[in-house]
Write a protein that binds this DNA or RNA. Structure first.
Length: 345
DNA sequence: AACGCGTGGCT
DNA sequence: TAGCCAAGCGT
């Protein structure tokens, strides 16, 4: 039996029941695909339901404030996805007359939509025969065909895309794409794949050669950087504080946080008091205490943030204009929301 | 073309 | 535990 038929047969018996599979509404499918980029189904599912509820159509999304979109996205990570989603919703409403683009070529022009996402939407919603290549597809194909080209090399990206495209069932491309991804997620898992019950076992090169654990091949990982964050948590006598929006290019763009003093290494109270930033913000006497006796280490994929929360109480601060009760309306990183939960409990 | 971008689950 | 990985994309 040819690859696609065997795969789809497996899929029909094993597929997961997921809400975005009940529809061909391209806006809903688009939303689900953006949420699921580098994100597990279990983590993204609630966000999908919340977004569909808050923004039932692309018009609703386009008309929202960016901070509202980010607030709903809070906790999901990779926040550029939310900003690009919102940007593209406005583009669809304003430039495309509210009509979702219908071909791969047009869909891939949306900001935040690359080859994978455009292929997924085009195949699932518009029956265009464009093969998806995500982490699951790399794993399934590298194992089944015994390909050791690094999946994150430019040669590998081309090779696997062409291979996937050669295997796709043109008459049911959307089903094929979902099938190969579900197969990778459920059966051909990264660790401990279910080879003993696998319908492809007798023709899988990696299984036959006992190389399952060696594939796929991935080139070097990047080094993790340590950073030292000191948040100045201001509390005035009339229950006000300061939050600042993160601008620029780094992490958490568009999210809010307490005023931040970043240092080269961990600092103590004396270091804090003698810093330029501290003296500019607090020319008069204030009460300072370190909230977390042990450094909080917040781990991002590429940075470890060694964090201290300094509680600074004072009578009045001219820039402190956010009521403590209003903090919950602002989108904040998980690091900040974890602190707030502990501090306010 | 390599790197930056979050968070959480699994081993 | 520390590292790997997850329905990738932008620059």
């Amino acid at each position: 039996m040819i690859f696609s038929n065997k795969l789809i047969l497996w899929y029909l018996q094993n597929k997961r029941d997921l809400p975005w599979r009940k529809t061909k509404n391209p806006y809903h499918v688009w939303l689900s695909e953006i949420i699921l980029q580098q994100t597990r189904v279990a983590q993204g599912l609630d966000y999908y339901l919340k977004f569909i509820d808050a923004f039932p159509t692309v018009n609703h999304l386009a008309n929202a404030e960016e901070s509202t979109v980010l607030k709903l996205w809070q906790g999901l990570g990779y926040y550029s996805r939310a900003r690009n989603l919102h940007f593209s919703a406005k583009y669809i409403v304003n430039e495309l007359n509210g009509e979702f683009p219908k071909t791969y070529k047009e869909i891939v022009k949306l900001k935040g939509v690359g080859d994978y996402t455009a292929s997924a939407i085009a195949s699932m919603c518009f029956n265009e025969s464009t093969a998806v290549v995500d982490g699951n597809v790399y794993r399934v194909l590298s194992r089944y065909f015994g390909i050791d080209t690094p999946i994150n090399s430019s040669a590998g990206i081309k090779e696997f895309k062409a291979l996937a495209q050669s295997l796709i069932d043109d008459s049911q491309s959307g089903t094929f794409n979902q099938a190969i991804m579900d197969f990778g997620a459920i059966q051909c898992k990264p660790k401990k794949p279910l080879c003993l019950f696998c319908p492809f076992a007798d023709s899988c090169v990696a299984f036959q050669k006992n190389k399952i654990d060696l594939l796929p091949v991935k080139e070097k990982k990047l080094k993790i950087k340590n950073r030292y964050f000191n948040f100045l948590v201001i509390k005035t006598a009339d229950h006000k504080t300061i939050l600042k929006e993160r601008k620029g290019k780094g992490i958490w763009q568009g999210l809010y946080q307490f005023p931040l003093l970043e240092s080269e290494k961990s600092i103590d109270k004396n270091d804090l008091i003698s810093s330029e930033m501290f003296n500019e913000m607090f020319p008069n006497e204030v009460s300072i205490s370190l909230f977390n006796k042990k450094e909080v280490v917040h781990k991002l994929s590429h940075q470890h943030l060694h964090t201290q929360f300094w509680i600074i109480e004072l009578n009045h601060q001219k820039d402190a204009n956010i009521d403590w009760k209003a903090i919950e309306n602002y989108p904040v990183p998980v690091l900040i929301s974890n602190f707030l939960e502990e501090y306010l409990s």
